[in-house]
Write a protein that binds this DNA or RNA. Structure first.
Lengths: 280, 280
DNA sequence: TGATTTGTTTCTCTTGCCGAAACTTGGTTT
DNA sequence: AAACCAAGTTTCGGCAAGAGAAACAAATCA
């Protein structure tokens, strides 16, 4: 009988496997052999072949007839752009990103929470020669960077704990927090703040400022972020960035129907609440 | 026993169904209800729910808890950008598109063949106020526009016939070819040419010029296209466009390892060949 | 040439899946 | 507020779609 995964939602094993195969390509592997697919997805070679063949027939994968290697197919690209065009948040936020770049001359990003790590869904790049490398569609770790930690701060208790306990954390720089307990402490201390500033924890020479974006229900749906090379970071500039990014976050949230007062409410709904550090 | 679809490749029904569900969102439907998914994909509601739930758990779909409507999820976006970044053809062709736009002041596109219609995988837009609407990732019909017909011309006999016979063709303007026989005639007359010019068959007020892109093996892998509003079309301009687009197509092909002489060969390998209308 | 790795097929067993129909929920009509 | 309708969800038993071990084939290496 068709079962439910941990009694919550329906889960079809076959479809799940197909998704696992596709995701083999997610972390920077443009080309993979059948054996790689099998290894990475933990699926038997036999079955990996059948899944890959099916996906290929649907245009989700492309196999080079010569080398026998697989790549993601045009259909995935096509669907990807379809998402891109249908994202409300992106439409609303884009002009704000543009304005942030105009005002700061640094790169601005829009980042949304996602099960396996926050994903960057929009970028407006700085025009300066030295700038942070911001890749559209890139997935971030949970333990480094301003946006991931800010998102963690506002995620519901349960989800946050799930992430904090179920992950091994990677070190990126000497300032990266890799200990789950320390990360929890840091993250909880952010709650209630409408911005977060951090320097050199994901990239040795970069700093960033993020502000949360809330929807009408007061849940966090993303963050706006501005980041740049540490070399251009002066006290005055950072203060200005914080002011601008906070404002952008608040504005975007407002456009999404978020009532500012709900921030305090959203926080206090949870157990270990603290009064917001700053009002609006 | 696991069967093969028409004896050719493996085909897993479950995976196929999941793909069908995802593709419901392909043609401009950002939001769909369970019932819509069921109807559009021809899958029972029961099963559509189970597939959609599974896809949702994997981040391939997102369901608004309020409205119960589905949207494509972040994972699809993430994978989409991964394809985008790994496309060799795109990397090679992009600078040529840019140069075409600089020289012509009109919009340039890179289009690749795909089972259910050519897809635009790169665009450099004209900066003029009046310009063609070119959507990245958009799928085109087979019977209208310069690129689709040019691709048809160079596709292997079998594939071309499959497309020509298995489709009902839609009319876009009064000049659109909707009759399969007429389309075959037109398309065969293009074979051997290294460009194709057309005016007002997809969009009443737009014209376009496309040139084929061949790979090292002499198969068509895409087209370069420049298109603009008919109002700006003068004889001299069209001639210039043709010259530029032809050159770009040839150059990109060369970078892909295509040996120009192979063009004549590729054509004459097939039955009803004709000598190329123009040499290089 | 033999050894090793990668890709493909075969075959058998069964578990994951399928669909009809019943049930629930929320909104609209009378 | 009862009756209605449409959308979503759950249940259930039967069975065929699919899983995997192992044999086979085809490259690649040494």
């Amino acid at each position: 009988m068709t079962r439910k995964r941990d009694g919550e939602t329906y889960w079809l094993e076959g479809v799940g496997r197909a998704m696992r195969v596709l995701e083999c390509f997610a972390d920077g592997n443009p080309e993979l052999r059948l054996t790689d697919l099998s290894h990475r997805s933990g699926i038997t070679k036999t079955q990996a072949l059948r899944i890959a063949s099916t996906l290929e027939a649907g245009g989700y994968l492309h196999r080079d007839p010569e080398t026998k290697r697989y790549r993601l197919g045009i259909t995935v690209f096509h669907l990807g752009t379809a998402v891109h065009n249908s994202m409300d948040l992106r439409h609303i936020a884009h002009p704000y990103l543009q304005r942030l770049v105009d005002a700061t001359q640094e790169t601005a990003r829009l980042i949304v929470p996602h099960a396996s790590g926050p994903v960057c869904i929009d970028v407006v790049e700085s025009q300066k020669g030295i700038r942070v490398f911001a890749q559209l569609g890139a997935k971030m770790p949970w333990n480094a960077g301003t946006s991931p930690k800010l998102i963690l701060a506002y995620l519901p208790e349960e989800e946050r704990e799930h992430i904090l306990t179920h992950r091994p954390f990677k070190r990126y720089t000497k300032r990266t927090i890799v200990d789950a307990r320390e990360l929890r402490r840091e993250v909880l201390s952010i709650r209630g703040q409408d911005f977060y500033y951090c320097d050199g924890d994901l990239d040795e020479d970069a700093f960033g400022v993020s502000a949360p974006i809330f929807n009408h229900a007061g849940s966090i749906v993303g963050t706006v972020n501005v980041s740049g090379p540490s070399s251009r970071r002066s006290k005055a500039e950072v203060d200005q960035f914080i002011r601008l990014v906070r404002a952008a976050g608040a504005e975007i949230s407002r456009e999404l129907g978020h009532c500012p007062a709900a921030l305090a409410t959203a926080v206090s709904e949870h157990s270990d609440s603290r009064v917001p550090a700053r009002g609006p």
